[in-house]
Amino acid sequence: MKKLLAIGTLSLISSLALADKPVVLHSGEPLPLGVAADNTQNRATANNSFPPSNGYVSAGYAGSKIGSNEFGGDERFNGFFLNAGTYVAPKTSLYMEYAFQDASEMDFSEVALGLNYKFLENDKNYASVGGGIGYAWLDEKAYDPYYDMHVSLELNYLTVPLYLEVGHQLNPNIEIFGNLGYKWFFNRDSEACIDGLCVSGNSSDLDIDGMTYKAGLRYNF
């Protein structure tokens, strides 16, 4: 009876100690049942998390609805983007992007540098926010048959994009994502020509802004 009581007391003390303190084992000793189960669960959780990545490339559809009252309202643009980034912290990446979009007789190209931060990761899904700074140039050429005139417009902008992005991991290397954002265009230079007669300069009256949206694929390497 005393032997059974001693064994039971030692078992109880060991159980209470394991609840708050790490287990120290000598070589060859098996893990306690509860600790082994916890380690198995931790490994399973780790396997479901996003794998470490050095960088990525991505591409896809890019669209926007931008303009101003001075331009007669908003214009819808459609095009594509190419993006490459590198991780500077576990959840933060630095990226560079090129985008091209057009609408009727108007088109614009843009290069941008920015940061993306993943603030939420849940199994294979994530959410992130991003922003940066860019430079865009917008061109429009038209012919007015009524006045028999050729008209062209070239506008250069400093851009400030902000966006919210959500994505899903298809496999350890590939993600599908979409984002919705807002972008401000600050005029830095402009030139307007009518039949070869041109004027140039910059004006805040030429500033534009509006919604942006993207959908694409990302490859992590």
Score class of each variant (00 low, 15 high):
V129H: 10
W137Q: 09
L115Q: 13
G134S: 06
G131I: 08
C198H: 06
L158E: 07
E154D: 12
E105G: 06
T40R: 04
G79E: 12
S190G: 07
K3C: 10
C193Y: 01
E110M: 14
Y182T: 08
W184P: 00
D102E: 06
G63C: 07
L206E: 03
L164W: 05
Y182P: 04
L82F: 15
M149N: 12
D20S: 14
V35T: 14
I194T: 12
G132A: 09
V199Y: 02
G67K: 02
V35Y: 04
Y143S: 07
A136Y: 00
F50E: 07
S152Q: 11
T212H: 00
D207Y: 02
N179P: 01
N78T: 10
L82T: 15
L33S: 14
L16N: 13
D207P: 06
I133D: 02
G73W: 04
D209K: 02
I176E: 06
V199L: 01
F100H: 14
A84W: 00
P22W: 11
D38H: 12
G201S: 12
P32E: 14
Y146I: 15
G131M: 05
L4K: 12
P90R: 01
T159M: 04
D148Q: 13
V24Y: 08
F100T: 11
V151A: 13
S49N: 11
L31K: 12
A36R: 15
T45Q: 07
T40W: 04
V151Y: 10
F221K: 03
S204D: 13
A62T: 02
M96H: 06
L33H: 10
S27V: 08
A59P: 09
D123F: 00
N83L: 08
L31P: 10
G167Q: 10
G60F: 04
Y213R: 04
D209P: 01
A89T: 08
G181R: 01
T159P: 03
I7Y: 03
W184H: 09
K118T: 10
Y157H: 09
G73V: 05
Y213E: 09
T45Y: 13
S64Q: 06
A136I: 01
I7W: 00
S128T: 03
T9F: 12
P22G: 13
N48R: 06
A59R: 08
Y126V: 00
D74I: 03
F119K: 01
G178K: 02
D148T: 13
G134F: 02
L113I: 15
Q169I: 02
Y219D: 07
M1F: 11
L4W: 10
G167W: 01
G8F: 09
R218V: 11
T159N: 04
A127F: 02
E121G: 01
D207S: 08
N125V: 05
P51M: 03
D139T: 02
Y157I: 05
K118P: 05
P51W: 05
Y61T: 08
G181I: 05
S128W: 00
W137N: 05
S49A: 13
C193T: 12
T9P: 00
W184S: 09
P30W: 05
N179Y: 03
N202Y: 11
Y135N: 04
T86I: 12
K2R: 15
T212G: 02
P161Q: 07
